[in-house]
Design a protein around this nucleic acid. Structure first.
Lengths: 332, 332
DNA sequence: CGGCACAATGCTCACTTTGAGCATAAGTGA
DNA sequence: TCACTTATGCTCAAAGTGAGCATTGTGCCG
């Protein structure tokens, strides 16, 4: 029989293999229609990788993981967090940067959405456009230039293997993630694309390369980050892109009042695609997500737009996702 | 400046607060149209809570979290895992059962879907209908009887507070999760419902009650589990209910060939609701999820049904989720 | 001040996707 | 052969979507 102690590893007498646990945060804001992540300076990393995400170890003073995270972020960046959700727990032995001997080190990543870009009280903390790290993800201006450079390399990678089965599998993955060999682009597969590039050796983090990439390389495969933080960022973007489709989370990024077009720009910034304007406002309208204020924009060119605000009530109303699979009348 | 050591806690000299990390698995199968989870016997728990989920500590031999999990599950249950995905990492100080002094203990939970119910090589491992633990989640036979018992208690809980604001918030939550005070039932909010019951004191695990619940209580608020495993189970069900709507994961639970109605029964088992038969098959058909075989069922009453098989290719085809927010032509 | 360029809004229209049912087909058991 | 049961085919109306055209306010520029 399995004992509780055996299972949970709480045998006080012989504590079984403790691990070092870290907390990492992807803190997202959107200003001027650009998606940004909060970054901090990190010492002791390879050249060109001195920027990372706010992070810190979990310490016993933290009552919960999330509280611990908030504490670290406030300390490192002076940024208060509002909306926070757990992203993923990373634990690969060989992907976390330098290794702690015999100790597993795993990091619990969180996604946070914040409203305003504080001028950043600390020099070490700064907001960066996230497409700087993943340039191939931005389709707002059409197919990103970076992709043109990346694609042949990926195809070469798929072709370089002798094993035809493996080659086939690689091509399938390319089709699925990058939409090569027919296949459509799915903006949510951010992580899968990053991991594919990683495997294909196009990501400097892969080999722990210490040589800094050239500016040209950076424009194509993006700016590297400390540790495996680019992977964490990719995870966050993918998750967020999925979530905005069925939960009104974008509003966490908006100021108290805004125009429908600003809202659209924000969604576009996150998803990396452009949307049909009229249909976008129809969608927002019929879902009852916003209500008009009596303010309008002014100053800019063109007809002034009405300012709206998010209807907090919808958080209670929305029957929520509710996709297909609607229940039958009651055939039982 | 934040140093790498500071951030990641990898300072070999003074290792900062290691934690005990556990792995937990919710292993799901569906046989005879019932959703089941694999459970194991757990020693040293309060009366009536001797059943838990397969789990074990993370040890350094495990190259990745997932591999560690697979190892534990195979050892404890002799069950091989196929589809596995990470669920959530639980880390509340006060919810994990007995505490390790000064050590954070957190558990990384996984969801696994398996095809067949092995007769279970070990007596300690057995498959249990998951609604045994969460009886209020099963709407297949209409509104579950358990809900009728639960609702007045929840309303009382909302009413028992003096603070009108708090009362209001509680009622909002009831509406959102249980569909009380108007509000619709959303089958995905499994965890939120469990947590609400927990807070309302209707869940024995809450106070670490050692007194065993009466059979009548169990029929209403469900069979308790060891540790916080019922919470983990609730998380898994909610996640799975969401996922089947936009990814063809149900097929991981199906035998090589099956009828459309068996497929429907499986989906219904997971989601806890009934579906319109004709529309269900239309959906499956037009999405091209299955292909016909030349077999048909026999023996049972009624017209024999055609056996179909899952089209593995769709894993490569499906433009995937792809909900709303379709991109514009290219207005840029 | 009239005309322009530009963005915000209104509204149309064809085409799919759903929710619900009716009608038939094809076995089993009495 | 009839009664019953489940599988399948099809129809229909109501919503939901993807694309565009048309109009309305504003700031700017002769």
């Amino acid at each position: 029989m399995t004992t509780a102690k055996d299972m949970q590893g709480r045998d006080g007498a012989a504590l079984p293999n403790p691990s070092a646990v870290g907390l990492v945060a992807v803190i997202v804001a959107a200003t001027d229609g650009e998606p940004r992540a909060l970054t901090v300076q990190v010492e002791g990393q390879a050249a060109g990788r001195s920027v990372g995400l706010p992070a810190g170890p979990l310490v016993p003073e933290h009552p919960t993981l999330e509280r611990g995270l908030r504490a670290w972020v406030e300390r490192q960046t002076h940024q208060r967090l509002g909306y926070v959700e757990q992203l993923y727990t990373f634990g690969d032995r060989d992907r976390q940067g330098d290794e702690a001997q015999g100790l597993h080190s795993l990091s619990v990543a969180y996604l946070a959405l914040v409203r305003e870009v504080r001028p950043a009280g600390l020099a070490e903390a700064s907001w960066r456009n996230w497409y700087r790290y993943l340039p191939w993800e931005d389709f707002r201006e059409g197919r990103p230039a970076a992709l043109a450079e990346i694609e042949p390399k990926l195809l070469a990678w798929a072709g370089e293997t002798g094993d035809p089965k493996l080659k086939r599998r690689r091509e399938d993955r390319l089709s699925l993630t990058f939409g090569l060999c027919d296949g459509a682009w799915n903006e949510e597969r951010v992580l899968e694309r990053y991991e594919l590039l990683f495997e294909a050796g196009l990501i400097p983090e892969a080999q722990g390369q210490s040589g800094s990439a050239s500016p040209a390389d950076i424009a194509v495969t993006g700016q590297p980050m400390a540790f495996d933080h680019r992977r964490v960022l990719a995870t966050a973007i993918g998750r967020l892109r999925g979530k905005i489709k069925y939960r009104p989370v974008v509003f966490e990024l908006m100021p108290p009042t805004f125009t429908l077009f600003q809202l659209q720009r924000t969604v576009e910034a996150l998803s990396g695609t452009n949307l049909h304007k009229q249909n976008f406002r129809r969608l927002v309208a019929q879902q009852g997500l916003v209500e008009e204020t009596d303010g309008v924009t002014s100053g800019a060119t063109g007809r002034p737009a009405r300012l709206v605000r998010f209807r907090r009530e919808v958080l209670l109303e929305r029957p929520a996702p509710g996709f297909r699979l609607r229940p039958a009348k009651r055939p039982a």
